[in-house]
Design a protein around this nucleic acid. Structure first.
Lengths: 235, 235, 235, 235
DNA sequence: AATGAATGAGGCTTCATTCAT
DNA sequence: GATGAATGAAGCCTCATTCAT
C-alpha cells in the first residue's frame, strides 16, 4: 500500500513548521518579546545552516535580523545559547508535526507511511534545518564526550536529544507491535527494526544535504522508501 | 540469506583501515617525509574527531604529535589542508577495503550482504572517523553552497565526495541489476533503491555516533539490516 | 591625656553620617526629587564600595535602588557623575561631623584627641565609605595627571580634594599653634607636623581596609594613637 | 637621634629598585624571555599607574612596549595577571631594599630611622608604584570580600599582602622590643605601636600621591617624621 | 516623570600563520 | 628541515547611554 501525498497532508505539514518560514498566522498572539526571539532564531538558523555555528558571527545575525549586536544578547545568553534554542525549537516543532499527522489514522501501515512521508516532507521543506540538526548531533556527541572526561559543563538550554530519539523509536515500535498483533506485519525484532527504520530517515537526510541533486523528486523517493520498508516487514 | 562475520572478513577489514590505528606494516616503505605526514594526519584526526575542526588548535596537533608548531606547516598548507587530506585519506582507505571485500564473490546477494557488513565493521572500528566524516559532509555542503553564491574558492585537496558517493551507488546499482537479471531480485527502480540502501548505511552511522549505547551488538544489527533489505528486494 | 569615647560623642557622630545609614530623620524636609537623589547615591556607594566604580554597573545600581535604569539618568548625567557626587556628599558630611565635634572644647589637647577619635569613629562606622574615598583619591590623582597632559576635562561635580585636605591641615595647624602658644606643645614645624598627623589618619584607614582583623578594637587603637601623638608633641 | 640621608643609603636604594627604572646592571644575566617579561611589566606599571588597571588597555601596553598585542599573552595569562605580577614584583623589590638597608646597623633607633627613611625614599623614587600599590590594596580588599561571599576564586599570582604586611609589622615589633629591652624605648604596647607606625608610612604615601606639591622636600619630611616617632617612644 | 528595550563602541582574548634562527 | 616566538586580524560579549513610550 502506497500513500500519495495529499493536499491535506501538505497543509497540515505546512502549518506545523511554518514558524521556520516565518508564516505563523497567529503570531500576533505571541508577545512582542517572544516574536523578536523567534525572529532572531529564524535569522540565526538561516545563517547557521549556511555557514555553520563556528563561522556564523553574532554581528551577522544581528545585521541580517535588522537589529543591533547588543540586542541579540537581550534575548540570548550567548551564541551557543542561540544555537541550542534553535535546535530545541526545531525538535519541538518536529514533534508537533509528527503527532498531528499520525493522529489521522489507526492503521499501522498507514501510520508508518504517514510517518515516513511527514519526515520526508519536513526535511525537504526545511532544508536549512537539516544542516543545523546534523551539526547539533555532532556538537552534542562532543559535549557528551567532554562531559565524560570531566571537562566542562553542559551549556544551558541543550535539548535532550537521546530522549527525543527514544520517543521516536518508541513511536515506531508501538506501530510495529500493533501491526504484528493485527497480523499485518510479520514477527520481527521490533526494537532493532524500529532503530533501523529511524536510521534510514536520517541517512536520507544526510544524503539529501550533500547530494540534493540526486533526489529532486522527494515525493517519488518517499514512495519507494515506504514501499521498500513495508515490503520488508509485511506479513 | 544471512552472512555471518568471518575471521577472514575481519582481518581484511583490519588491514584496510589499519592506517588509522597506526599499524600499517609496510610503513617502512614510506619515505620519512611521507611517514611524518601520515603521523600528523593520524594525530589530527584523533583531535578533529574529538573536538571538531573548529575547536582543534594547530598547536594541539603539533603538541600531541610531538613536533613543533611550525613543522606542521612544512607538511600542510593550512589547518583546513590537514582536515581535507585526512578526509581524503579516510575515503581512500574506505574504497580499498570495500573493493577488497566484495571481490570475494559474484553472487549479488552475498555481495550486498558483504557490503553491508563491511560498512558496519568499518564504522564500528573507526568510531573516531565517523565524526570527521560527518563534519566533512557538513563542511563540504557549505563549501558547495558558497561556491554557487560565487563566494570563495574550493580549498585545495578537497576530495570529490559527490563522485565518491556516485561510485558507491553505482556499485550497488550494478549489484542490484545483476540480481534482477539473475532473477534473484524483483524488478525495481534500481537508481532509487541503491540511493536508499546507501542512505541507510549512513543513517546508521549517525545514530551510532549519537546513541551508541543502543547499538552495542553491531553484528546483530547488521544481520537484521541485511535481512530487512534482502527481504525487501528479493524476488 | 586620653579621651574616652562618650555617649555624647557617639550620638553626635551618628547624626553626622547617618545619611549613609539611611536614617536621616528630617528626610521628610527634603524634596521628593532630592530624596530620590540621595537614595540613589546611597545605593551606589554601597556598590561602589563593594566592587569599585569600574565593576559597578548602572543597571545594578538601578536594580538595587528599585528603580528603572533610565531613571538614574534623570538624576545624574553619568556614572562618573554619581561617583563624584557620592564622594562630595561624603566629604561634606565628614566636614560637618568634625566641626560639630571639635566645637565642644577650646583646649588644644582635647581638640586634637577629639579630632583623632572622631576620624577613627567615622572610619569605623562607615567602612564602606573608605573604599570609595580611597578610590576617589586614585581617580582624582589620575584626573589631575591627565589634566596636566592636556588630555580631557575635569568632569562636573568633582570635589576639590586638595582644598578639602588643606582645610583639615589648617585645622590641625591652628590647633597646634594654639597649643604652642599656650605652652602646652613644644615648638615644632607646625606645617609638617600637621601634615604628618593627618597622614597617619589615612594610613590607618588604609590598613583598616586591608587588614581589618588586626584592628578589632578601634577604641583601643585610637587611645594609643592619641597618646603617641600627644607624647610626641607635648611640651 | 636623627639619621640624615647619606650617599651610601641612596645608592643602596637605587640599586634596589632600579629594576623599575630599567637600569638593572646585570640584566644581561636574565634570560631573554625573562627580560621581555620584565620589559612588559615595566611598561604596564607605567600605564597602570597613570590610568589605573581598568582604563589601561592591553593594546596600549603592547604598543608602548613595542610588541604585538598577542605577544603580551605569551608572557601573561591575562591583564589581571600582568597587574598582580607587577604588584608582586614591586613587593619583592621592596622587601629586598628594606632588608639590605636595615642590615647595616643593630641599634634599634638607627634601624627605625633607617626603615623610615628607606620607605620614604622608596616611595619618592618610584612614584608610579604608589598608585599601583594603592590600587592593588583596593582590588585585593574587594577580592577578599568576594571570596567570603563565595563569589569567584582568587586569580593566580596574587601576592599575599596580609602576609607581607605582617612581616613588616614583625620587623618593627622586633625593633621596638629590642629598644625596650635595651632601655632605649619606654615600655609600650608593641603590637599596636608597630601597627600605627606602619600605618603612618602608608598614610604619607597616600598624601604624597594626592598632594605631592605639599611634600616637595621629602628628606625634611622624613626627618620630622623620624623625630616625632622617636620622641614619642623614647624612654 | 519613569521606564527598559535597543544600541554599538570598545576591550579582552584566541589562534592560524609567518619567519628568523 | 625544524622550531616556536611573534603577530594581528577577528570575534564574542559588556555595558553606559539614549529615547520612544
Amino acid at each position: 500500500m502506497i500513500i500519495y501525498p495529499t493536499d491535506q497532508s501538505v497543509s497540515l505539514f505546512v502549518s506545523g513548521i511554518a514558524f521556520l518560514a516565518g508564516v505563523v498566522k497567529d503570531m500576533a498572539e505571541l508577545s512582542s518579546k517572544e516574536q523578536k526571539r523567534l525572529h532572531i532564531i529564524r535569522t540565526a538558523m538561516a545563517l547557521f545552516a549556511q555557514n555553520g555555528i563556528h563561522k556564523t558571527k553574532v554581528s551577522e545575525i544581528a545585521k541580517m535580523a535588522g537589529i543591533g549586536k547588543g540586542t541579540v544578547y537581550e534575548y540570548f545568553r550567548s551564541k551557543d545559547g542561540i544555537f541550542w534554542n534553535a535546535v530545541s525549537q526545531w525538535l519541538h516543532e518536529f514533534d508537533r508535526v509528527i503527532t498531528e499527522r499520525m493522529s489521522g489514522t489507526d492503521d499501522p501501515e498507514e501510520q508508518l507511511a504517514l510517518l515516513i512521508r511527514t519526515v520526508f516532507d519536513f526535511y525537504q521543506s526545511t532544508f536549512e534545518g537539516l544542516n543545523i540538526t546534523l551539526e547539533s548531533w555532532l556538537e552534542m556527541a562532543r559535549l557528551h564526550h567532554q562531559l565524560k572526561s570531566g571537562k566542562g559543563e553542559l551549556p544551558e538550554g541543550i535539548p535532550d536529544l537521546k530522549c527525543h530519539f527514544k520517543e521516536y523509536r518508541q513511536r515506531v515500535k508501538d506501530l510495529l507491535t500493533a501491526g504484528i498483533e493485527q497480523g499485518k506485519f510479520r514477527p520481527m525484532n521490533v526494537e532493532l527494526t524500529a532503530a533501523l527504520i529511524f536510521a534510514m530517515f536520517d541517512g536520507f537526510e544526510l544524503h539529501y544535504i550533500t547530494q540534493r541533486s540526486d533526489f529532486e523528486d522527494v515525493t517519488q523517493v518517499s514512495t519507494v522508501f515506504v514501499q521498500m520498508i513495508l515490503d520488508g516487514i509485511r506479513a
